[in-house]
C-alpha cells in the first residue's frame, strides 16, 4: 500500500527525513512511532503530495506519488496534524464542502455520504452550530469524518486521538479496528506508545528523520527467553538454578529459561513456593527507548544536559 525508497527531505540545511524505506502492506494496521520533531509529519505530508521530496521514491496504492495524486488520493482518507475546518460553518456544511471539492463529489448522494461519515465517528446528532463552538474532541471526530467521506482503501492518520477523552479514544480505536477488518489499511502516525501498542499490528520507529526500526508488533514484543519468578523461597531457587538466575531483587528473580510451565513444575516439584511466574516480554516503550535518542524537543546546552 505504501512503499518508500530512500525518501529524503531537506528544509534548507535541516534534514527532516533521511532516506527512509517504509513498507506498509495491504490490511496492515501500521503504527508509525517517533518522538516530536522526528519527521513523522513531514513524511506523512510527502506521502500525500503536500511536501515535495528532496530525493527518493514514493509509491502509494502501487502508483508513484505525487505524480499520480489525482488517481491515488481519492482512495486515501487522511488527517494530517489535527483537523481543519471552516470555523464559521457547521460540521455538516464543512463535510459537504469537502465532499463537493474533490472528485466523485456529485450533488446526488452527498447528504448520505456526509451522514454516514458523521455516524461513523459518532457525530450524527450534531446540530447547526459552527465548528468554532466545537470542543477539541468534536473537531477531531469531524476531521476523522472528513477522512472517511469516500470510504477510502487507505487511511493515513496523524495523531487521530489528540484531544479525545479515554472513552473517545476507545471508540475511535474500535472504529479503526472495525474499518481494518472490513479491508481498510490503516497508517497511524503517533508519538503515543500506548495507542500504537493497543491498535497496531506493525510498527516503524523514526528518530531524527531516520527509520530505526520496522517490524511486526508481535516480533518486537516476543518473549526474551527470560522468566520472571517471584518466590518467598528465593534463596533456594537461586541455589537450585545456579547459573541460570540473571538477577535477583528480594523475592524477585530473573531466570534464563525457555519454558515457563516447565520451570514452574520443576520448582513446585521440589517444594519451592512460587507466588508469581511469567515469561519476560519487552514493552514497546523499552523497544522505542532502546532504539532512539533524547527527546525531540529537548535542547541541551553544549556542556551537557545538567546545567541550569
Amino acid at each position: 500500500m505504501i512503499r518508500t525508497r530512500g525518501l529524503t527531505k531537506r528544509f534548507g540545511r535541516i534534514v527532516a527525513v533521511d532516506s527512509v524505506d517504509l513498507d506498509v502492506a495491504e490490511g496492515d494496521r501500521f503504527g508509525f512511532l517517533g518522538p516530536n520533531g522526528s519527521g513523522k509529519t513531514t513524511l506523512v505530508r510527502m506521502l500525500l503530495g503536500l511536501v515535495h521530496a528532496t530525493a527518493g521514491e514514493i509509491e502509494v496504492l502501487g502508483k508513484s506519488m505525487p505524480r499520480n495524486a489525482a488517481k491515488v488520493l481519492p482512495q486515501v482518507g487522511a488527517m494530517v496534524e489535527g483537523p481543519g475546518a471552516y470555523p464559521h460553518l457547521s460540521g455538516r456544511r464543512n463535510l459537504a464542502m469537502f465532499d463537493a471539492a474533490g472528485p466523485g463529489g456529485g450533488r446526488r448522494g452527498r447528504a448520505d455520504r456526509v451522514e454516514s461519515a458523521l455516524a461513523q465517528v459518532g457525530l450524527s446528532g450534531v446540530d447547526r452550530r459552527p465548528v468554532s463552538a466545537y470542543s477539541l474532541g468534536m473537531r477531531q471526530r469531524l476531521g476523522l469524518a472528513a477522512a472517511l467521506l469516500r470510504a477510502p482503501r487507505l487511511l493515513i492518520l496523524d495523531e487521530p486521538t489528540n484531544g479525545l477523552d479515554p472513552k473517545g479514544i476507545r471508540e475511535i480505536r474500535d472504529l479503526l479496528v472495525a474499518l481494518n477488518e472490513a479491508g481498510t489499511t490503516v497508517f497511524l502516525s503517533s508519538h503515543l506508545l500506548a495507542e500504537v501498542e493497543q491498535l497496531c499490528t506493525r510498527v516503524a520507529v523514526v528518530d531524527r528523520g531516520r527509520m530505526v526500526l520496522q517490524d511486526s508488533l508481535a516480533a518486537l514484543l516476543a518473549p526474551t527467553g527470560h522468566v520472571l519468578v517471584r518466590s518467598p523461597d528465593a534463596a533456594q531457587v537461586v541455589a537450585l538454578l545456579d547459573g541460570q538466575v540473571v538477577a535477583r531483587d528480594g523475592d524477585r528473580l530473573v531466570v534464563r529459561h525457555a519454558d515457563v510451565a516447565g520451570l514452574n513444575a520443576d520448582l513446585v516439584g521440589r517444594g519451592l513456593r512460587v507466588s508469581g511466574i511469567e515469561a519476560e516480554r519487552r514493552t514497546l516503550e523499552q523497544v522505542v527507548l532502546d532504539s532512539t535518542g533524547a527527546s525531540g524537543d529537548r535542547i541541551d546546552g553544549p556542556t551537557g544536559g545538567e546545567d541550569r
Partner: peptide
Amino acid sequence: ATGTLRYLLVRPVA
C-alpha cells in the same frame, strides 16, 4: 491558517 488547505489538496483538488 484554518488548516483547510491541506484537506482540500488531499481531497484531492489540483
